[in-house]
Design a protein around this nucleic acid. Sequence first.
RNA 1: GGUCUGGUAGCUCAGUCGGAUUAGAGCAACAGCCUUCUAAGCUGUGGGUCAUGGGUUCGAGUCCCAUCCGGAUCACCA
Length: 611
Amino acid sequence: MKIENKITEAVMAIVEELYGQPVPEKMVQLQQTRPEFEGQITLVVFPFTKMSHKAPEQTAAEIGQQLVQKLPEVVAKFNAVKGFLNLCICSQQWVALLEEIHQNPRFGFTPVTEDSPLVMIEYSSPNTNKPLHLGHVRNNLLGWALAQVMEANGNRVVKTNIVNDRGIHICKSMLAWLKWGNGETPESSGKKGDHLIGDYYVAFDKHYREEVKALTEQLVLSGLPAEEAEERAKQEAPLIKEAHAMLVKWEQNDPEVRALWRKMNEWVYAGFDETYRALGVSFDKIYYESETYLEGKEKVEEGLQKGFFYRRDDGSVWADLTGEGLDEKLLLRSDGTSVYMTQDIGTAKLRFQDFPIDKMIYVVGNEQNYHFQVLSILLDKLGFKWGKDLVHFSYGMVELPNGKMKSREGTVVDADDLIATMVADARQMSADKVNRLEGITEEEAQEIARIVGLGALKYFILKVDARKNMLFNPAESIDFNGNTGPFIQYTYARIRSILRKWEKEQGARGKEQGARSEDCSTLADREISLIQKLQSFEATVKQAGQDYNPSCIANYCYDLASEYNRFYHDFSVLREEDEQKRTFRIALSETVGQVIKNGMGLLGIEVPERM
RNA sequence: GGUCUGGUAGCUCAGUCGGAUUAGAGCAACAGCCUUCUAAGCUGUGGGUCAUGGGUUCGAGUCCCAUCCGGAUCACCA
């Protein structure tokens, strides 16, 4: 039984006994004692003053006395400051707690069973016409971390990706490749497939803009107002018309267009796979829009028959959501083709056929908040049981110091470049610390650099609250000091180093057990607060699962590492002469390392054995 | 304009269920600490009207209302 629970139970009994009123459990508020006061756990007594009809301080004192009497093995002594009752907990309790955590390598995790709820998480969702950029990186990292967190909270998780592999943007790349590509392939050019295709997408855009510009001038000369001229030029430029023609051919299953489309998409997928592998993310099931985009129509027809939707005179189908405080939403165009919303309904249908989903989480940027509000209502109306409380895990945009990322203006941070830069910087960083690299092969050093560089990137992104927009300053982000991933990794590596030395020592004189509860009556404040910190990992994981918020785990890892660093500087663990204390502190260190590893693991961040 | 969302130190960010006379980290600046288990570290100094005004109460950065500023969204685009 946890220390908190014992105290809560006792307080409930005591208050009822003293003041004659039953107390709901929620009223018993326990918190960590502020460092400037003596004690470790504090009871907030304000809520009880109404029952006691006494001053807060006196009420606190009365409860404190009873606690010491009734729980002598837990509460050693107390002091009351205003309405706060600070309790000094017996060291044995802390030692026992540490031992419990130490014994449980999965501390804080809820086991997953056959009957656990099935949660599907959709993330990444790239377009196949250009490589992944920083915005996708945030999406992928959040999606992956969220999946880990949900699993840690006892859910079965299916990670899924919907690939937007069809549409006008793909045709643009295809067209440009046909026109100017001379048969270039990833092999012949040495480029990653997604970058190759992205280059043609850019080429298309460049030529297209030139055409638009020339055509606009022409139209202006013939007497059209400038704005109107540009509008028309955009629609009538030969290139865009060709692209549209290609899209029509694609939809008609033209063998040549389809073959080219398939070939180029394969190149892109190979490129994406490489980036995904570098980021350490993966999927259990991938859906392609080309396979799902027609499915939604059927569901919309069904909704139409049931009277949820209505058809206008021009044949288009709409949902009237004014009753829900929203607008009317188009579901099928007048020509019968589907729109974005229809496709999402179709994808939902397929997913539900494939999996008995209990909860669906979409990791998609906050610019689509409205879309998912509507989708939730529509899916609910159409009878998807998870539709009503689907979760749109909505994250903010990544901004750059000079504004937003815009592919046209070349202010995009490419994912592959970014990863390579971070790893190279980490390599440079550790090369500066020559003594560390002793006895390490070049290969091992490279692997450490990969772990540290990626750790820096991942932590930098995951530590900020997902729903907020965040600023990515390329110069400052490559910082390995302070509140960063490498700081936490460093703490871990140092703990491992201590343990390696200790194990060597133990090997010489025979194995010995870790934490001992006897004779540790005088724990230092630092040790106790470390144990308290360790204990709160459980609550943090739970909270992250409830709020769908990986960032609190990131901040927890930093807090824990900081706390350990102070401990590390206060005590010489290996040189401690008192045998009891030393084994205790070794066990404490080992447990901190274990929790750091688990916490970082939830974020998809690896920790190195040495660095 | 409607809806949603954010505003905390020069900069980037934390801040749990509303809790403690003094609101925390990191970066940047300044000052200390490597004969001691990994200095990617530790300790200290300076830096704040928690956007503004009201309200709720024993108590508000946190909850409510209004205002100001920023962002997103409101397509027969995806």
